[in-house]
């Protein structure tokens, strides 16, 4: 849609630019704050850093084994993702494409699960995992993450798959392709953008989760990055805003990098029904 860019369009562009500044400015503010000392920040919250003072980053890495925490979080998220997709893709396919009795009820039930607040089931689920012997284990975190992500993942992937033309799948079935062949050669490749989108949404949510790792993991060396960084604040000690900001910033880099790399796939994934 190449258009001639008249004044009206440039005007709108200007408005969007203001919006973009509003979207980015707070983030840039955090970055500049992370390079300032507490005294600098308190005397003038708006100024740019006097020098690129890395002390907050040093403070972070002195206090935490940041690499280990990132490794933990990435490992848990990775495993959770594989499990989640293995379970969600067949279910999404069935609910989107197969017509069988009870499908609607099942679908409604799964979507309804999205409305259960994590806080409400935190304690009962922890007790369950303790009874299974997982009181201080990544198994608990991974289990909760999968449970949390499944409903919305199925909702998203089913919506994407529903837009796929039935003929493709029927053709494969008539060809004699078995269930798993159908999955591997048709459903997954065609639904891939949706799968990638759901994966990114999930990983972002899991990466930023605080309460579940806090409760389900008791050892510091198994902890996730976000939950670990949250222990910086202390009772009655002056709040070190630049330090806290630095911790949160480092913790945010992974989702941001992931997004930047996989931008194109997110957009393709949400395109519902444009597969011709």
């Amino acid at each position: 849609m190449r258009k001639k860019n008249g004044p009206a369009r440039w005007g709108i562009s200007g408005l969007l630019a203001v919006l973009a500044v509003a979207a980015l400015a707070p983030l840039l503010y955090m970055i500049t704050t992370s390079f300032r000392t507490l005294q600098e920040f308190a005397s003038d919250p708006l100024a740019l850093p006097a020098t690129l003072n890395p002390e907050n980053y040093i403070g972070l890495s002195s206090r935490f084994d940041v690499v280990q925490l990132i490794g933990n979080t990435a490992a848990y998220a990775g495993v959770a993702l594989v499990i989640c997709m293995t379970i969600a893709i067949p279910a999404s396919y069935a609910l989107a494409k197969l017509r069988f009795r009870g499908a609607t009820l099942l679908f409604v039930g799964i979507v309804a699960t999205m409305g259960v607040p994590m806080i409400s089931i935190l304690v009962p689920d922890y007790l369950l995992f303790v009874q299974l012997g997982f009181e201080d284990s990544p198994v608990g975190v991974i289990g909760m993450w999968v449970a949390r992500a499944l409903p919305s993942t199925i909702f998203l992937i089913a919506s994407v798959l529903r837009a796929l033309p039935d003929e493709l799948i029927e053709a494969a079935t008539l060809d004699g392709a078995g269930y798993f062949r159908r999955m591997r050669s048709i459903v997954i490749p065609l639904g891939l953008p949706g799968i990638v989108t759901a994966s990114i949404f999930n990983i972002t949510g899991w990466w930023n989760d605080l309460l579940v790792p806090l409760v389900f993991l008791q050892s510091d060396d198994k902890q996730t990055l976000n939950a670990g960084v949250a222990t910086i604040g202390q009772r009655m000690v002056t709040s070190d805003v630049p330090q806290t900001v630095t911790g949160l910033l480092v913790s945010s880099t992974v989702p941001i990098i992931l997004y930047v790399i996989l931008q194109g796939n997110i957009r393709k994934g949400l395109v519902m029904g444009s597969v011709k």
């Binding site: 922890y126 007790l127 009181e135 309460l211 806090l214 008791q218 050892s219 949250a230 222990t231 604040g233």
Partner: peptide, 19 residues
Amino acid sequence: ETLPGDATMFTKIRTAAIA
């Protein structure tokens, strides 16, 4: 092991104690 320094300390301890 470290505890958070704010009120979420008690979320962690209470849940562990209950279990």
